[in-house]
Design a protein around this nucleic acid. Structure first.
Lengths: 220, 220
DNA sequence: CTTGTATTTAAACGATCGTTTGAACTTAAT
DNA sequence: ATTAAGTTCAAACGATCGTTTAAATACAAG
């Protein structure tokens, strides 16, 4: 019988980047898989091939490391979203499709596609107390801007309705990129396919209701 | 200055129900707020006004208690979903609206509305390793049945497309019931309002695409 | 009251948690 | 070679983790 190491035997060699980057990558992977409470400082250090004290030295604390992880990936996505929304406004092409396109595109297509996607999905579903201090780093602003833009497309709809429709889009996006259970929804389609489907689904859902009266009459 | 107890001072008296129910209620509340890794056995026992050993005595382990929590709330919802889908089939009224209505209704309107809703939202976003053993307790089956029913409504669409559209509905549902951040989407509307909006949004999103060609031509 | 089963309890188990310490080591400028 | 700043290290800190043990208690049946 073979002897196993104390923790999970890492099948891959450690990365060759600097310590801070190795810590960021390791924390990112473990946060995506297990959430904040489920990832341990020692697990991060092990995966990064770094002494556990390096975390406090470079990032102050586990929470500080998570903040750095999120800023590295989420901030560029939100910046891209803002830029694209501005471009839509400059072109005077404020359709709901163009707006949702600007919102969704940077999540699916960016420098570090898969990790950034899954990070985005995980961070939105974490318990409030862990994430809430991070949301004021530019997250609420982006949502607000897009809600305003979307509301301008439907002047006759309540703002509260627009907000909730947008939350539906965010929810669908979250589950798509987080992909919590292969056993339920099967293997993930390619990013281009998922993006197209999600955009079409969201655009259709955002339209005015086709008929407001037949809501309550087809259920027992 | 006043003296505080060791842990969070509970502002409310302990419930008067039996030990098992108190444990279930306490674990449910903490799981919704903090997830599985974030809830502690001692925190549960404290909130339930129960000795910590009672957890192992009545439920075997922390995982066993969580399973009991989920079965208590999720199983009735899935049973109700199945019943309503059967009723739709018996009435030969298999519209996508009726099918999605049968899927969504039991989440919003059931015996223990708010706790069951939020539990449903949390369990779908938990890390895989914690939840996956529970999904084979009837969860995947329900999704599968509804996907089949939905696919029958759109015979010309790929099954993979139907599956992903359904995942969009589940994602939107999750974020709606979980409501992770009041700061982003504001206060939650009444259950009836959220249900109507989510149903309409989902039904519209499920329709055939209005035009498949203008997808790639309105972005720079 | 006595017996036997079911439940609750205080206490402790070893393990792991996030964090801190101070020395050892590396690196580059003097 | 010497200094100083930057970085990594083994080791330990107290706290909390989930679980277990065995004694104490509650309670119905005989």
């Amino acid at each position: 019988m073979s002897v196993n190491s104390a923790r999970k035997p890492r099948e891959v060699r450690c990365e060759t980047k600097d310590t801070q980057t190795r810590l960021l990558n390791a924390a990112e992977a473990l946060f995506i898989d297990a959430g904040y409470a489920g990832m341990s400082a020692r697990g991060i250090a092990d995966r990064a091939c770094v002494n556990i004290a390096a975390m406090a030295y470079h990032f102050g604390s586990k929470q500080g490391l998570l903040e750095a992880v999120l800023i590295r990936r989420i901030a560029p996505i939100n910046t891209s979203r803002r830029r694209r929304l501005e471009a839509v406004h400059e072109r005077r092409a404020e359709s709901i499709r163009a707006i949702l396109h600007a919102f969704l595109w940077p999540v699916f297509f960016n420098e570090h596609e898969a990790p950034a996607r899954r990070l985005m999905g995980r961070v939105m579903t974490e318990p409030a107390e862990v994430i809430e201090p991070l949301l004021n780093l530019g997250f609420s602003d982006v949502i607000e801007q897009f809600v305003v833009a979307a509301a301008a497309c439907f002047p006759k709809q309540d703002r509260a309705l627009i907000v909730q429709k947008f939350s539906f889009v965010v929810g669908a996006l979250n589950l798509t990129v987080l992909r919590p259970s292969e056993h339920i929804f099967g293997p993930a389609p390619a990013a281009e396919v998922s993006f197209d489907r999600l955009l079409n689904f969201s655009v259709d859902g955002f339209q005015q209701w086709p008929s407001l009266s037949d809501v309550n009459k087809d259920m027992a």
